[in-house]
Structures are given as structure tokens and as C-alpha cells.
Design a binder for these strands. Structure first.
Length: 535
RNA sequence: GCCCCCGUAGCUCAGGGGACAGAGCGACGGACUUCUAAUCCGACGGUCGCAGGUUCGAAUCCUGCCGGGGGCACCA
């Protein structure tokens, strides 16, 4: 990789100058073209320790790198307070093209930082009391895309939906179904949605809230699964909460905590001491005075199952910010079970609301995910939800989303892919076969539009790693848009085939186009968006 | 009261120590006899909420304040 070569060269040049290099040599791609292809701030960073002015170090470094130039470097300049800017010959980008083509869709920007570690991503996990809504869909895209990033970086991923199929929730659902079936109004705390009403008319089981609730939850879950598949999401596991709570798992988990000497009884309740594990509260209740376990106890049993029984190396829970209050006690409880804290991550997504107000099933102002998908399509929905950080509270203006759906950024990117497919088709029609890459003169690719495309492609491996580290799949969306942007510019200014394009240039450009196709395909796949051959 | 997130162009958002702050949409003006105009090009548009601080350098980090959202149960 070019960066390593440059970093090594800089490090050894600094050594010859008697300057201690910082542990990592800061090398970045400047935002401005005139600042070169790569730029280093080592002179600025090491000035203080070296006791020399940064520009003086930069000057000496630039001279060394000019005399003993690393591969592709053809001009070195000192700029600003002490940056050393490296201007590279286009050959470095031609190597990028080869890297992309050699690796292909399967291999380019694939990393093995995970070393096969088993990661579970749990997301959505909305109660099966009705179809999931657009807000849930936002986190669904996020969780799935995060899983894709983990997969591409050498992790083994399990996508999981935790199904609340137990307790009061289910009884309220059952009571709502029975009330509807009897033609009575649903209870105050019930579910009055049209979906439940529709289910009720089909219910033929016994007049029992538990039975009716379980039946309805199963039906609803089937629908949720369908909603998820409609946005290209497939779960590996639908984990039943009842399977935890109806088993001895909760009691066992509490016993385990007791064995560790962290549990005490007071006022008829059982308390877990959590203060030592980063919880701002001293203690949390595990078993209420009425003998029932708390939600926390059940959740700890579930997480014991994830982390100690199934033994995932890393568990990532994607939650809405309205569950913020659960984080500290859960993390503390998991540590109390003896699990290293870094094995459990909770990503809180800020609230998604509609211009008409916060979405709520109870309030009845939620818009079902599948309704929006029917209108704008799954790909537009995914790009829309994956274009912004989950730290950003989002307000969706549905009228606007509908109105703008035809101009969705997704089409911009997909169109680039379709154009490429079209070029390949036309080339085949005209009998223009691509020669083996080794026989093609990539040195002909010197147009600024061509180089811009290649610069974007060179960034993808870094983008993937940063997106992974920051759990920020939207960075992939930003990148893929930029690649498409540069490709459209190339497409406009640089004909691949046609009058006045020499056969050798056609060959080089066909490979550039192919490399772009690979980049777009990788980026779109990471987002779970389709890459059409034509539009 | 305490905790988390956010405040960047008219709107929706990127950028989250680096050199003159970006994109889409909206509004303005151009470009199709070639591989898809779902495209391209140009111009317009900003006290990066406010005030201090750290730094060679702050939209970015720290502190305080203002504004918005969320959370602080023997509920799930």
C-alpha cells in the first residue's frame, strides 16, 4: 500500500535528520488538490520535541524526500506552518486501479481486523404488538448495515431480534384481539390499530387472553419478518423472551450474581450492588417484593445467554435513545456477571420522528415501514436512513420524502452503476473486447476526471475501517455518493468508445470503468442497496 | 437537579484537530448528431448557537451559558 511506503520513507528520512518520528506518521489526503496527493504533518508534530522550528524540519525533510524519492513521488513541497506535501505521479493511481480489479467485488476493501470474532448485532426488537414503523426502519437499516461492515472486516455476524412474547404485553394484545372479536371497544391500555382489528376477525381460538395474545403476536411477528425482508434484511435469530423467562435462566442468573456476593435482601426485595461497575446508582432491584423478577433481571439473563452461554465475542445492541436509562444498569449487571465491559456495546440512536410528531403505536400516528417502502422503494428508504449519523435526531417530512423520492440520491448512485453496465454492453455489441489488464497501458489515464475517480477508489479501504470503528455506516453512503459523482463527471467528459478515442485509450478506460463498477458494487452492498444493470 | 445526543447555507444533512467549511434539495443561467440528460457545467448562498480556554493550528477538543430532543422505577 502506498501509504505504508510513504510513511516508511518519511520515517527513515526523519531518522537521517536526527528527528524522532512520532509513533504514527500522520499522512492524509489533503482536501485541496494543490496541496498534493498526500500530506504529512510530522514536522509540526515533532517540532517541539526536536526543539527546532517546524518549517525548518519540513524543509530538511522535503529535501531528503526529493533526493531519495519514494515510489511515484515527483514533487515535494513545504507549505503553510510546516506541512510537507507530496505530489505523486498518476502512476500511483494506476496501481490503485490494478488493486481494485485484482481484488474484485469480493476482495476490495475487505479487511481481516476481526479475525473471525463472533459478533452479534441486535436491532429493532420492537414489541410484536403491531407492524413496525418508519422509525424502527431507520434503526433496522443501521443495524443491518453495521452487520455488513462487520462481515466485510473479518467478523462472523449474527443478526438478532429479541422478541417480547411474554407477560403483560401479550395479555394486553390478547385482550385487544378478544375485545375486537366480540365487537367491543379495546381496553384503555390495549392496541387499537387496524392491524389488530384485522387479526381479530380471523381469530378462531379459545376465549383466553394468553392464547389470543400468543396467537396474535405470532401473526404480527410473521408480518414484521415480511416487512424486514422487504428492505433486504434477514435475521439469523428471532430470540424469544419467553424462552428465557419461562425457563430457569433468570433464577440461575440471579443465583450466579449471589454467588459472587453482589446480592442482598432488603425490604423484601433482592438488590444487586452495581455501584462498583460504573452505575451511578448504588443498587438495582432484581426481584421485587411481590416475588416477580424485574425487567433488569430478565435482561441480564438474556445477556448472560448472549455473552456467556452462546459466547459471542462482542454484542452490539442498537437501541433508541428512549432506552438510555437502561444502559448503565445493564452494563453494570453484565460486568457483575464477570464479563469484560468492552464485550457489550449499546449504540443509542437518537429519536426519529415525523413532522406530525413523535411516532408511537399507542398514539396511532406511526407510519408503517412497508407503507413507505411501497411508495418510495426499499433502496431509497435504505439510502435515506443510512445517509445520516444515528447521533443526529431526525425528523422525517413524509410529504417531502415522497415528493423527492424520484430525486433520491440512491438513483444518482445506481444510475452510475447502470451506465457502467451499459458501457460494457455496448462494448460487447461493438465487438470491443477488454484486453488483459497486464497488456493495457494505464499510463494513458491522465485526465483529471479519470484521476478523481481513482482517488475515490483509493479511499474505500480506509472508509470501511473508519465506518467500522465509528459504527458509522453513513460514511459509506457519503463515499459511494462521491464516487458516483466523480464517475458521472468522467462519463460526461471522457468517452470510452467513439470518434477520436484511440483503441489503447478505450482499453484503459474500459478498465477504469470496471474498477468503478467494483467500487460502486462494494459500497452499495455495504448499504444493502441493489446495483442495477439498467434503469 | 443529574446523565446522553444535537445546534454548520433558505431546507435536509456531511465534515468531528490541519491549510481558503462541503453535498443534495429549493431558487438562477447554460449543455444532448457519440457509451442512458435519473447526467454534466456555471453562478448564488455560511458571525459553523454564544462566550472563554487548550494548541503552531479549533466547525472539530475542554469549561460555562443559550436553544431543541431523549433519559433518570420494586414499568416493560
Amino acid at each position: 500500500m502506498i501509504r505504508d511506503q510513504l510513511a516508511d520513507a518519511i520515517r527513515s528520512a526523519l531518522g537521517e535528520l536526527g528527528v524522532d518520528a512520532p509513533p504514527t506518521v500522520g499522512l492524509e489526503r489533503p482536501a485541496r488538490r494543490e496541496h498534493g496527493d498526500w500530506s504529512t504533518n510530522v514536522a509540526l508534530a515533532s517540532a517541539k520535541a526536536a526543539g527546532r522550528p517546524p518549517r525548518q524540519i519540513a524543509q530538511a525533510l522535503a529535501e531528503r524526500l526529493t533526493v531519495d524519492a519514494p515510489p511515484h513521488v515527483d514533487k515535494v513541497e513545504v507549505a503553510g506552518p510546516g506541512f510537507v506535501n507530496l505530489h505523486l505521479a498518476p502512476t500511483w493511481l494506476h496501481e490503485v486501479l490494478r488493486d481494485v480489479v485484482d481484488a474484485g467485488v469480493d476482495g476490495y476493501a475487505r479487511h481481516d481486523v476481526g479475525h473471525g470474532r463472533r459478533v452479534q448485532v441486535e436491532f429493532v426488537s420492537a414489541n410484536p404488538t403491531g407492524p413496525i414503523h418508519v422509525g424502527n426502519g431507520w434503526f433496522a437499516s443501521y443495524g443491518d448495515a453495521l452487520g455488513r461492515l462487520f462481515e466485510r472486516t473479518g467478523h462472523e455476524v449474527t443478526r438478532e431480534y429479541y422478541v417480547n412474547d411474554t407477560g403483560g404485553q401479550i395479555r394486553r394484545l390478547g385482550a385487544s384481539v378478544l375485545a375486537r372479536a366480540d365487537g367491543e371497544p379495546v381496553p384503555e391500555d390495549g392496541y387499537a390499530s387496524g392491524f389488530v382489528k384485522g387479526l381479530a376477525s380471523a381469530y378462531e381460538g379459545p376465549h383466553d387472553v394468553e392464547e389470543a395474545g400468543r396467537w396474535a403476536a405470532g401473526k404480527i411477528l410473521g408480518f414484521i419478518r415480511h416487512q424486514m425482508e422487504a428492505v433486504n434484511i434477514s435475521y439469523d435469530e428471532w430470540f424469544s423472551q419467553a424462552s428465557i423467562e419461562d425457563s430457569a435462566a433468570v433464577g440461575e442468573t440471579v443465583d450466579l450474581l449471589a454467588e459472587r456476593g453482589l446480592v442482598s435482601e432488603r425490604d423484601g426485595a433482592l438488590w444487586l450492588r452495581t455501584a462498583d461497575f460504573g452505575d451511578p446508582r448504588e443498587e438495582r432491584v432484581l426481584r421485587k417484593a411481590d416475588g416477580d423478577f424485574t425487567y433488569l433481571a430478565g435482561d441480564l439473563a438474556y445477556h448472560r445467554n448472549k455473552l456467556l452461554i452462546r459466547g459471542f465475542d462482542l454484542v452490539v445492541n442498537v437501541w433508541g435513545a428512549d432506552h438510555h436509562g437502561q444502559v448503565a444498569s445493564l452494563k453494570a449487571g453484565v460486568q457483575a456477571l464477570g464479563v469484560a465491559p468492552e464485550r457489550l456495546e449499546v449504540r443509542l440512536g437518537q429519536m426519529i420522528s415525523l413532522t406530525s410528531g413523535r411516532m408511537s403505536k399507542r398514539a396511532g400516528n406511526a407510519v408503517d415501514l412497508d407503507d413507505l417502502v411501497d411508495e418510495i422503494g426499499a433502496d431509497a428508504m435504505r439510502i435515506l436512513s443510512l445517509s445520516t449519523s444515528i447521533d443526529q435526531p431526525t425528523t422525517i417530512d413524509l410529504d417531502r420524502v415522497r415528493a423527492e423520492s424520484r430525486e433520491s440520491p440512491v438513483y444518482y448512485v445506481q444510475y452510475a452503476h447502470a451506465r457502467i453496465a451499459s458501457i460494457h454492453r455496448v462494448a460487447a455489441e461493438r465487438g470491443v473486447a477488454r484486453q488483459p489488464l497486464a497488456d493495457v497501458d494505464l499510463g494513458l489515464l491522465v485526465h483529471e476526471r479519470e484521476l478523481e475517480v481513482l482517488r475515490s477508489l483509493s479511499e474505500l479501504p480506509d472508509v470501511v475501517l473508519v465506518a467500522l470503528d465509528e459504527r458509522a455506516p453513513h460514511k459509506v453512503a457519503t463515499w459511494v455518493r462521491e464516487l458516483a459523482d466523480r464517475f458521472h463527471g468522467f462519463y460526461h467528459d471522457c468517452y470510452v468508445m467513439g470518434d477520436g478515442v484511440a483503441p489503447a485509450l478505450t482499453q484503459a478506460r474500459l478498465w477504469l470503468v470496471e474498477a468503478t463498477r467494483i467500487g460502486l458494487a462494494v459500497g452499495l452492498d455495504l448499504l444493502g442497496v441493489s446495483a442495477p444493470e439498467s434503469m
